[in-house]
Amino acid sequence: MKSFSTTFAILSVLTFLSITMLLTLSDGVLFWIDLGILAVSIVSMCLFSTTKNYLFLLVVSLTVGFSFTFYAFLTDSSPEEQVQYMLQNVWVTVCLILLWLLSSHIRRVFEENKLLQNKVIELQKVDQFTGLLSPQEFSSQAAILYKGSARRNEACYLMTIVLLQRVYTDRALTNVISDTLLDTLRADYDLITMSGPTTFQVFLQNTTDMGCERVAQRMHDGLRPKINAVQIPIQTTFTKVDDAVILSLKEMSLRRDKAQ
């Protein structure tokens, strides 16, 4: 941010000084011509891309140079007038280059800021520690998948996994369960979130009661080698998804957002 401010300040000052010098050296018709060129250039810098503005800069600079040369030839200008035309062309080119650099710098900063905002939005969809969907993103995607499944007459189930009270503070167990669920479930098909410090929720689409049992068994088989316990300290339940379940997920997500 400090680098941006410094560069922006330097370019702004140089641009202002060059425009002031150009208009100071101009008089009569040349003043209005230079003012028109600057006005059109500023509008162009705001509307078009950096590459197009660079081409615009070249075209205008060459056009002004050839125009002054042609005018000096037609009017048989004196050496002093020719020098004035040359200085005009140089200052017009300098002003255009500085305007282009300034607009390019501002545009690049805005583009980087937009990329960062998009990255933040993407990061908000996934928990950075567990790799699971955020509750809000989970409820949003679950609602979309449920509508599609309902149109196809397919059943969806909500799998709820609760860590038992005596181990709920164990962060390592939470990570183990998260990794196991990500490895066990169908990627890009089922949804997983952590709706609370001790609760996981999984949205299973296009499945049956038997399918739910197989998912639970695969999860237990994946957890058993990783947990040194006679009985895996979790409790698993299944709920068939309907409109009420989707509504409860949305309400739970809203309450969580307000609490944060």
Rank of each mutant, 00 (worst) to 15 (best):
G36A: 15
A229R: 11
F16G: 07
G196P: 05
T236F: 09
F70V: 02
S248T: 08
T6P: 04
T7S: 05
C156A: 14
N175C: 06
L191V: 00
L247M: 07
S195A: 04
A150C: 05
V120T: 05
K250W: 08
T184Q: 01
M1G: 15
S12N: 15
S139C: 04
S140V: 07
V162G: 02
M252C: 06
V167L: 05
V241Q: 02
N89S: 13
L38R: 11
A172V: 10
T130Y: 06
F68W: 12
A72D: 14
T15H: 08
F56W: 14
T207Q: 08
D243E: 13
L163A: 05
M21Y: 03
M219W: 01
L145S: 14
A72Q: 09
R108E: 03
L249V: 08
I106T: 08
Q260S: 12
V83R: 09
P79A: 04
F31D: 00
N206Y: 01
E213K: 11
H220L: 11
L191E: 07
D257F: 07
A244I: 10
D243F: 03
L99C: 13
L182F: 00
L30K: 04
Q124N: 09
L99W: 13
I121V: 13
D190P: 06
D242C: 04
Y189C: 05
N118P: 01
Q231S: 11
S3N: 15
A39P: 03
L96H: 12
T20D: 02
L35T: 13
I161V: 12
G28F: 14
V109D: 10
T6A: 09
M45N: 09
I33K: 08
T75D: 10
T237D: 09
Q235I: 00
P135Y: 03
E80A: 09
A216S: 10
G222S: 09
L47D: 09
F4P: 00
A172P: 06
L11R: 04
A39F: 11
F238Q: 01
C156V: 00
T193V: 01
T237F: 06
H220Y: 03
T130D: 00
A229F: 09
V120M: 12
Q205A: 11
A142S: 13
L223R: 07
I144M: 12
M194I: 07
H105G: 00
S41H: 05
T174F: 02
L23I: 13
S61G: 07
L182T: 15
V176F: 11
M159Q: 03
D243N: 10
Q260G: 07
L55Y: 13
L249N: 00
L62C: 06
